[in-house]
Design a protein around this nucleic acid. Sequence first.
DNA 1: AGCATTAAATTGACAGCGTCAACATTGACG
DNA 2: CGTCAATGTTGACGCTGTCAATTTAATGCT
Lengths: 196, 196
Amino acid sequence: MTRPYHHGDLRAALLAAAEEIVNRNSVAGLTLRGVAREVGASHAAPKNHFDDLTGLVSELAAVGFNRFADAMQSASARHEDPQDKLNAIGRAYVEFALAEPGLFQLMFRGERLDKTRPALHEAMLRAFGTLTGSVAATHEGDPDAARATRAHAARAWSMVHGFAILLLDDRLNPLLDAGSPRADALALLDDMLAMG
Amino acid sequence: MTRPYHHGDLRAALLAAAEEIVNRNSVAGLTLRGVAREVGASHAAPKNHFDDLTGLVSELAAVGFNRFADAMQSASARHEDPQDKLNAIGRAYVEFALAEPGLFQLMFRGERLDKTRPALHEAMLRAFGTLTGSVAATHEGDPDAARATRAHAARAWSMVHGFAILLLDDRLNPLLDAGSPRADALALLDDMLAMG
DNA sequence: AGCATTAAATTGACAGCGTCAACATTGACG
DNA sequence: CGTCAATGTTGACGCTGTCAATTTAATGCT
């Protein structure tokens, strides 16, 4: 089995290797040469498929945002009431961050993200659109709802995002049960969502 | 306190240069060799004062967290009512992030932070203690307040932190006035805080 | 078919980075 | 005055991203 000069689908292999590395070593350990090494390609091979490190990170972030949007939409679809849908999206938001912490942090590392890349731009619109759209659905029929809807969306989004970030960074520990902080976190989130 | 011989106080000069670089080039442009170059020292000079890059970043983060705590305490002191104090702290949280975005992002970049460093550990306790303490003050006299207080603290903290992070990352733009997003952001925050 | 063009992958080089070890200089203290 | 620890410098190593030049494979054209 001699290795052919041209890999069958190097682009997909590089993306898979990149995700595996991020899951193992966190985002700091993600390197162009590292992913190339992982798939047995030369150190400059990624240049052909992604222009540079920003390109690779951005394309992987696009994959992540699409999976993220899927998770939120699927959670929302399990409920009928608009408020239940919104709460389910909030839980899915945090659960995604806990399930794929490396990928989640990569998706929100602004400095190495080129948001003008079509794949990433579209995936971000999809993910954030489901969240803000679900908020808007709870304001149906409100008169002059624009301002309240905007504040509601910003509040819900900020809350779950901040919670996820602080959680991944081990900063909420003083508020969590020392015994099982991870399990306790989702119970705490439910309390937060129940406050309205 | 022994004083260095050639540069006067190289440690302070390095910290100042580091902050200046972070303010100019964001956290990605902060390098050990860069700060050494800035103050005219050799490339390995920082090793004597901070062990490695993590050390420099952590000490700078400690400076930031102390300034952060000062800002929140000073904002809180301008009000009497516990709820007003808490809202003022929330505004100060976001205003600090907007005023020193590079430093703020450095303070929350977990991977290059050694939270066991005494200076950083203490500064973080101070900053987060003012916030959670101010939340607890709004629950004085409540029966069975422990659980509600915990959820309230997590919610308030997550909300302002998520808002600050999303704002710095230009992710709230779809919710902001395209004309003056910066000024609009604080108005939006007030609406969020007013929701309770 | 055969040739030309393009895409894909490799090799080699360069500068910048963090970090370590070895060495030099200084100020403090006995 | 002499020793010593602290502070700075120099040089080296391997790692990284990125570029230019080159080789190889696939594809298209006539």
